[in-house]
Simulated scan of single mutants.
Amino acid sequence: MNTNPTEYRLEGDGADIQSLPKISLHDHLDGGLRPQSLIELADELGLEVPAADAEALRAWFTEQSNSGSLVEYLKTFDLTTAVMQTRAGLSRVAREFVQDLGADGVIYGEIRWAPEQHLTRGLSLDEAVEAVQAGIEQGLDDVQALGRRIRVGQLVTAMRHNDRGLEIAELAVRHRERGVVGFDIAGPEAGFLPARHRTAFDYLASQFMPVTIHAGEADGLESIRGALLDGRALRLGHGVRIAEDLVIERQDDENTYVSLGPIAQWVRDREIALETSPSSNLQTGAIAAWGGELVDHPFDLLYQLGFRVTVNADNRLQSGTSLTRELALLSDAFGYDLDDFETFQLNAAASAFLPLDDREELAELIQDGFDEA
């Protein structure tokens, strides 16, 4: 981890945010590479990189990602995926990814990635999934050897602008007993509604495979509606534009009175988790309708209204962030305290793609860890 834990202490009681038990539901494998590892992997494959120094490369990613556009933001992944085309490359990235989660205080993480983007050097879809799982298991051993507790699952992702949805859904189901816990679609959101992959979602429903869908990030309510109806999504990847279905009726010095449209009402009342990623949402313009600063993010409004909000890093390399840092930024913006942080983690535990008993165990670990903070 490049993050110094001493930088992130909670105002008031001074709690070390990094040491708190956390859950990561929305974190992309190809968005979490260590810059030095990327340089070394590129050198092995004879690929050019924009900077030969790790810190300079880190800065390049952050600069390129601050575009205000999801489409431009996604272009940085051409470089990261290029070094993740071999069994060794995928395993190394996955192993280090888990190590970094552990260092960030994560006790349960779901790693999402799109196997169809990692086949240019001869791997099959199944071989790619197996390579990532091998790296995850090595990373778990590394973290546990340090006396930390962590569990990790794969979210196999299909690219929404391609036509391999059913094939990737079948891949996810094949590996559900070997590390895969759920399915996702990602990529350019606007113009590629979930209905495009309806056959895949029908198949996943028949197999009782949990689904989360990127929706409400680069597109609005129609995309969210499609995720819920066509995709049967149990969680919304980002989902921040659900706030477009809220109407502020009036405000006074102490209160804001809000009415919910039908989609927002459904999402809140059914406790469909919002996988918000504050820094990423600023970089991609997902919250542009409300402003350009973190304090403008609808996160707090959604939280106060009772939505099941969760906090995530999305892409740690592109956003120059960690889950610890995202929590610290939200605390600075909205004055959150330890109880709020605990609520966010309990929300995530309740929404994890795990059996009920395992989710309850996670909740107990979170409560115990916060009681000790």
Results as ranks from 00 to 15, higher is better:
residue 2 N to Q: 08
residue 5 P to F: 07
residue 11 E to P: 15
residue 15 A to T: 15
residue 15 A to P: 05
residue 19 S to Q: 13
residue 32 G to F: 01
residue 34 R to K: 06
residue 35 P to S: 08
residue 39 I to T: 10
residue 40 E to C: 06
residue 40 E to M: 08
residue 47 L to K: 06
residue 48 E to A: 13
residue 54 A to E: 08
residue 58 R to P: 01
residue 64 Q to G: 15
residue 76 T to V: 13
residue 81 T to A: 05
residue 90 L to I: 06
residue 90 L to Q: 06
residue 90 L to E: 02
residue 93 V to W: 02
residue 98 V to G: 02
residue 103 A to E: 09
residue 105 G to T: 09
residue 115 P to W: 07
residue 116 E to P: 02
residue 123 L to M: 15
residue 125 L to D: 10
residue 132 V to I: 12
residue 137 E to P: 03
residue 139 G to L: 03
residue 143 V to M: 07
residue 150 I to E: 02
residue 151 R to P: 00
residue 157 T to A: 07
residue 159 M to D: 10
residue 167 E to F: 12
residue 172 A to N: 06
residue 192 F to C: 08
residue 197 H to F: 10
residue 201 F to N: 12
residue 206 S to G: 11
residue 209 M to Q: 10
residue 221 L to S: 14
residue 242 I to S: 00
residue 245 D to C: 13
residue 245 D to I: 05
residue 248 I to M: 06
residue 255 N to G: 05
residue 262 P to A: 11
residue 265 Q to I: 11
residue 279 S to W: 02
residue 290 W to A: 14
residue 294 L to M: 11
residue 299 F to G: 03
residue 305 L to Y: 07
residue 306 G to I: 03
residue 311 V to K: 05
residue 312 N to H: 00
residue 321 T to I: 10
residue 330 L to T: 15
residue 332 D to Q: 15
residue 340 D to Y: 05
residue 347 N to L: 01
residue 351 S to P: 01
residue 356 L to H: 12
residue 359 R to A: 14
residue 364 E to F: 02
residue 368 D to I: 12
residue 370 F to W: 03
residue 373 A to M: 06
residue 373 A to L: 07
